[in-house]
Computed example of a mutant assay.
Amino acid sequence: MKAVTITEFGSAEVLQLTEIPQPIPVGNEVLIEVKASGVNRSDVLQRQGKYAAPTNTPNEIPGLEVAGVVVVCGPDVTQWKEGDRVCALLGGGGYAQFVAVKEGQCLPIPAKLDFIEAASLPETVFTVWSNIFERGSFQPGESLLVHGGSSGIGVTAIQLAHAFGSRVITTVGTDEKAQYCSDLGADLCINYKTQDFEEVLKNSGVDVILDMIGGPYFEKNLHVLNEDGRLVYINAESGKDVSLDIWQMMVKRLSISGSTLRGREYEYKKRLAEEVLKYVWPLIENGKFKPIVYKAYSYTDVVQAHQCMEQSKHIGKIILDWEV
């Protein structure tokens, strides 16, 4: 089968199309014929040698999410059958024509979505649900600040929080992105290039913050959190070393946490998939949440797809299309 391989760590040009053996599903795994693969920031970091794949996952093939058709079921599979349309969360290896994944990490593709749209869902929806709604204990009616509102994570978080009747604030880098996020349901969009979000929010505050920036945002986040506020990290693109005022954390009763999803155990991902199916998939069916795809590239144009990701001009998800 064809797969996109990291030939060495470096720029996008190190990604090359190669031929590798097709995986064979065992136990409770299904073999998916991939129609589309999601492109994520972590794929770029893996390509650069900054984010290794979990144990037993090929480090040379990126890709954390796919959509396609089940073509073979392992002997212990009970949830799926050949021909089922599914999308799946992976530990890696998604830039390929076929992937083998445990059945509990798959979800049915909603009837109204195509493969391109479905491939944009697993990584972002699982991450948002895990970190905002579970780790952040976000409740309807509370306020949420999402840094990086135009990213795949951002557009997902905005829509889901809005669907649950909450006030949503986000930071973005352009007025165009601000307008787009506003159209998705954000109540306030702050252009971080012209405004200081701490200054804007100093009188209103927020209950939960989802941050992928880190670094200089850390102290500002603490300042704008309300009492009993929760700060959740999923990345630290601008730096991982920060200074914590423990007294401020104590007085305001703040909770600070973070997580990575990729290396979590199967049982956790399986439970998370069940939660997503129960609470998020109905929002897709009734039109309250929709996938936001910026552009779908042919798998042969994977270099351009990664360059697009690194330019950070996109709004929503970048996808690799395996049918063109």
Rank of each mutant, 00 (worst) to 15 (best):
I256W: 01
T174Y: 00
G91K: 09
S120I: 02
S151W: 04
F98G: 07
Y294R: 07
F138L: 06
S257R: 02
A273R: 03
P58I: 01
G49T: 00
R253V: 02
A3H: 01
E237Q: 14
Q304D: 02
C106N: 02
D43C: 09
L254A: 02
T170L: 14
K2M: 07
A3R: 12
R167N: 09
F197E: 11
C189P: 09
D196L: 01
D207Q: 14
V146T: 09
T174A: 02
R262Q: 13
P108H: 04
G165S: 10
S204C: 07
V86R: 14
V303P: 03
D43S: 10
C106E: 05
C87M: 14
V172D: 04
V128E: 07
G68C: 11
I292W: 00
I6W: 03
M212Q: 15
I318P: 00
I190G: 03
E117W: 14
E134L: 09
Q179L: 01
Y51L: 15
S238F: 12
S143N: 08
I246S: 11
K81E: 15
H223Y: 00
R47V: 04
V302M: 02
M249N: 02
T57V: 15
V71W: 05
A161Q: 01
A67T: 10
S150R: 06
K313L: 13
E267W: 12
Q304G: 15
C73E: 09
E274W: 06
E13Q: 15
V70T: 05
Y192K: 05
V276N: 08
I169W: 03
S120R: 08
W247A: 14
K177V: 02
A178Y: 07
